[in-house]
Design a protein around this nucleic acid. Structure first.
Length: 451
DNA sequence: CCCCATGATTGTCG
DNA sequence: CGACAATCATGGGG
């Protein structure tokens, strides 16, 4: 349109003679008449936009049949030739937009634009895996998956719509150009160029679509997955379970991969969160054992009860060969149980007796004692076994045997809060089996808080 | 609003 | 790659 009117103006610009045009140059008396003719035609062309469509069509037809048409057409061809040169210089093919490529890659990675597999479930898996979150906690994930599928659907329908619209528009324009090529010269190359322009326009729209889709996915992701990045305290129950494990394995608080998975399942958190937790716990415990004494005692008591029950059950059922089950409901692996049972059984007794000395109050020890007396029937309010006494020895033995640290025990490791060696490692000493004697407890608090 | 507990992240090391 | 140490950043209690 622009071009057309421009041409018209050029034609009407009275500078026709300046052009190397093959216009039939009028002579003599025909001069005036011809001029009149051209004037008429030009006038009709100029005013064609003022007319109604029907009128214009009729005029167009009239012009098409006009005897001057071939001449004018050739003029147009000439002009076209001239202006076409400048147009041709413009770059036609631009390199693939890096941003578009990025978007494409991302959408592919997010599983939005890739091939549809299983309703996008695998895509979600890929997306979540990309975040480093395993396939856990399916509640959030199903929600996430649903939302992602929704985005995916919208994206695809929109994309389809755009493509359809693009095709329609392209054919429309091509038809139009073909139609127009009857009145003005339009080379196939020009049509192709026009189509390219249209495609570029539409692809820029598509890019916007992709961009917003990406944004939507990012938002979704941040809401559902990165939400975990923000610190959210674990549930009390989860902390309980983790602490139980930690303090009952204080001598070697390094859960195996399986144990981590088990804990993760039990706590409804991820394995990496379990790892984080243990990493943090170990380091913080080590840094300030004193601070954790109470907690240690608490959980030692708990696990002690658990283990006692387990042991009692085991003893009770030893003839029937039925497996012992910790009352906590926590499923331990066989080897764990072996180890724990040994360790805890001994510790337990020790702990209980220690705790019952009266000078060291165990939070929640009431329960423990209840259970104990219930289970064993013979709870003795005992004198505190001072470290190194008979029970301590047997425990040390037991632990040494079960953990293979028999030589790493010095003094009364059981009562020392230092399950740690001087290097900060866990491996040279056996744990404080959680309950400390009053004396040791005091010592530990002092010595350990010093760092 | 401050402070501490705590989950997560980052960088380093073996 | 896992453990550790330091650090960040937030949640929640006071």
């Amino acid at each position: 349109m622009e071009e057309q009117s421009h041409l018209m103006h050029t034609l009407g610009g009275v500078t026709l003679t300046g052009l190397p045009v093959a216009l039939p140059v009028p002579h003599d008396g025909a001069d005036a008449r011809n001029k009149q003719d051209i004037g008429d035609i030009l006038h009709q062309i100029m005013t064609i936009t003022d007319q109604s469509l029907d009128e214009a069509q009729a005029k167009k037809h009239g012009l098409n049949c006009h005897r001057m048409k071939p001449a004018l057409f050739s003029v147009l061809c000439e002009i076209k030739e001239k202006t076409g040169l400048s147009i041709r210089g413009s770059p036609d093919e631009d390199p693939p937009d890096p941003q578009l490529m990025r978007l494409d890659n991302m959408l592919l990675a997010e599983g939005v634009s890739g091939p549809e597999k299983g309703g996008g479930a695998s895509a979600v898996a890929a997306a979540t895996a990309a975040v480093g979150v395993g396939a856990d906690n399916s509640i959030e994930h199903s929600d996430y998956r649903a939302k992602l599928t929704q985005i995916r659907q919208i994206y695809h329908t929109e994309l389809e719509k755009y493509e359809q619209a693009c095709n329609e528009f392209t054919t429309h324009v091509m038809n139009l150009l073909r139609e127009q090529s009857r009145t003005r010269p339009i080379s196939p190359k020009e049509i192709e160029r026009m189509v390219n322009i249209i495609h570029r326009k539409f692809s820029s729209i598509q890019m916007q679509l992709k961009q917003s889709t990406c944004e939507a996915v990012m938002i979704l992701r941040s809401r559902f997955l990165d939400a975990r990045r923000k610190r959210r305290n674990f549930s009390k129950q989860a902390t309980e379970i983790l602490n139980e494990y930690f303090y009952s394995h204080l001598s070697n608080p390094y859960p195996s991969e399986e144990a981590k998975e088990e804990l993760a399942k039990k706590c409804a958190i991820t394995v990496s969160q379990v790892s984080n937790w243990f990493g943090n716990k170990r380091i913080r415990y080590k840094k300030n054992i004193g601070k954790f004494q109470e907690e240690a005692n608490l959980y030692a008591a708990k696990t002690a009860v658990t283990a006692t029950q387990a042991v009692a059950a085991a003893v009770h059922n030893s003839q029937t060969n039925s497996p012992a089950t910790p009352s906590s409901g926590f499923q331990m692996k066989d080897e764990d149980f072996q180890l724990d049972a040994t360790e805890d059984k001994n510790n337990l007794l020790n702990n209980i007796f220690t705790g019952s000395s009266g000078s060291y109050s165990l939070p929640g020890s009431g329960d423990m004692f209840m259970s104990m007396s219930n289970l064993n029937g013979s709870y003795q309010p005992a004198q505190v076994p001072v470290p190194g006494q008979t029970q301590g020895d047997s425990i040390r033995h037991a632990i040494g045997q079960s953990l293979g640290y028999s030589d790493g025990l010095r003094g009364n490791p059981l009562y020392s809060p230092h399950g740690l060696n001087g290097n900060g490692g866990w491996h040279d000493a056996v744990t404080p089996s959680s309950v400390t004697s009053p004396i040791e407890g005091a010592n530990s608090v002092h010595s350990d808080t010093s760092n």
